[in-house]
Design a protein around this nucleic acid. Sequence first.
DNA 1: CTGTAATAGTGTTTAATATACACTATTTTA
DNA 2: TAAAATAGTGTATATTAAACACTATTACAG
Lengths: 247, 247
Amino acid sequence: MEEHEETATTYDAARYDRPSVTVDVVIFTLIERELHVLMVQRKRWPYEGHWAIPGGFINMDESLEQAARRELEEETGVRDLYIEQLFTFGDVGRDPRTRVISVAYIALVRFDAQHLRVSDESHDVRWFPVSALPRDLAFDHEQILAFAVSRLRSKLEYTTLAFQLLPELFSILELKHIYEQILGEKLDKGNFYRKIKEAGLLEETTQMREGRGRPTRLWRFKHDRAGDKQFVFRWREDRAGSTKDVK
Amino acid sequence: MEEHEETATTYDAARYDRPSVTVDVVIFTLIERELHVLMVQRKRWPYEGHWAIPGGFINMDESLEQAARRELEEETGVRDLYIEQLFTFGDVGRDPRTRVISVAYIALVRFDAQHLRVSDESHDVRWFPVSALPRDLAFDHEQILAFAVSRLRSKLEYTTLAFQLLPELFSILELKHIYEQILGEKLDKGNFYRKIKEAGLLEETTQMREGRGRPTRLWRFKHDRAGDKQFVFRWREDRAGSTKDVK
DNA sequence: CTGTAATAGTGTTTAATATACACTATTTTA
DNA sequence: TAAAATAGTGTATATTAAACACTATTACAG
């Protein structure tokens, strides 16, 4: 409570009616070269039967990020992944039951059937392609999701965040594909090769992978350089979107 | 409460111990060509005598942004200014009294002695130059402030936000000065003139202002174009900082 | 009344980068 | 053995950034 004193006297902590605080986590992954997001289906009022972003109350003894990581692990079984605070949503009527303030996070996970607890069979927890989301999401989750996708796009352009979605070894064209998926536009192959190589982010391996045509070389992401905050791989220069607040 | 059902059954809203939620507003202004921030001095435990970012509890019937605007108005008497959500801070031990989650906002106000309620004489509310902040701020406010300044820098580079700090009429070199203040580096005069003019953001007026040397032309910001989300005035291309989470 | 300091504003040259797209390379499959 | 499929390279042109030299208009000191 870092209130200025005049407000401090107005509110008495004991009498003060407190809002609930939840953490919602928009979990992205790449399945068969398409960007997907994890949703859960609600079982009761309000919004019974509607799909929602996974989330839950924060515990009194965990930080917001810990709560988000816990939530992520409960839903998918994965931990230690990329997670980032998105925005806090707190409009008055967003939950019909009571006042709820929701701190939204974005998480990126590598899709890996071995480790991901969610299967395609589950009826109440499911991956949806971002391009084909269910209709009528619960609460203001449509807004949260739209914001998450937009943030993902704009951050992609000046961070190394795309690598979070890839397995350890990948080809340059696979990486390009992720960029195209998230940005929603085609990129020039030659320019992509040139830029990504000049960036010095990748480590060449001796491994190749065979497919239908010419085999492709596999690369590894240099995690040391990613930790270097000074360093940024910017794919394009023009950046409309931005991180501006929604609404 | 957009909880997944398994957590829903774990927590009962009535029994659930809820955190307090506050809104803190980092209020920036430009005083005599220097970037300043508004701080309040605490009168009691904890952190008695320490300076803090103004803030207060949210009311149950107002949105987060409304709470931030109310707070801003209470402190400075100004309203309808630029305000933006920064980040939500919720570490467990950040307030020694109880669990407090604080949604931090950034606000930009034009410094105008006529309308700003805060005067230099007030001992418990004061403007500090960002380059000379008081030591030992209350709570985690040092971290919040550092994050606010860094966000301000990075947003400055791809938004028209600098104009929020200027009076209606201003010279191009004054605008350049704001950029220099916030970015913390010198910019090339010629390049600045060229870029800002090409951007088409400014409207030339017939007014001039006299000073020590050659009088300068005054310009006005075209607010219509600012509303155009597609349009962005980007001063520089290199952008290290980014909006990455603190800590 | 003249020259110098102070501020305002323009123009030009060079280097770096983006963009588009044509080309070569290596494999599988018909 | 040719065609299709995928991988990867090279290059010409246009756009933009960056540095910096130049011109313009005022006040003020002598």
